[in-house]
């Protein structure tokens, strides 16, 4: 188990990076706006995963004090609480952004009757 822990951190981080890349690739290549929104949320998830993986310290536990983690030993027993706080913020903001994007997609469809990004060429140059 102990030998695997560093691998687990690297695996989580690699998964996060792959999700980011996958999401960006989707945003760049998909023609359907709804699919672009889905791809965007994929890369948001990837970013969160990478930040959480950076904050993880091997063989330590969650930053909550209890009988297992008394205050005196806290700094030797817990992982970095800051990335967790950041990701909590990022998840909530991500949800707000996703709702906003979906509302815009609805509006675009309502006005233009299409979800194909190629047909929305006003801002093309």
């Amino acid at each position: 188990m102990d030998a695997l822990s560093p691998l687990a951190v690297h695996a989580a981080m690699a998964t996060g990076f792959l999700l980011i890349l996958l999401g960006f690739y989707g945003v760049l290549t998909q023609r359907n706006i709804l699919r672009m929104v889905v791809a965007f949320t994929l890369s948001t998830t990837g970013v969160n995963l990478v930040i959480i993986a950076i904050g993880y310290t091997l063989r330590r536990t969650a930053p909550i004090l209890d009988e297992a983690v008394p205050l005196a030993e806290a700094s030797a027993r817990i992982i970095d609480p800051l990335p967790q706080a950041l990701v909590l913020t990022a998840i909530v903001i991500g949800l707000g952004i996703t709702a906003l994007m979906l509302a815009y997609v609805y509006k675009i469809y309502q006005v233009r009757r299409t979800l194909d990004i190629g047909k929305l060429s006003e801002l093309k140059w």
Binding site: P63, I64, D66, I78, P81, L82, Q84, A85, L88
Partner: peptide, 9 residues
């Protein structure tokens, strides 16, 4: 606070 993440947030 018991939960340190809460104290930060």
């Amino acid at each position: 606070t018991v939960n340190i993440t809460t104290a930060i947030i």
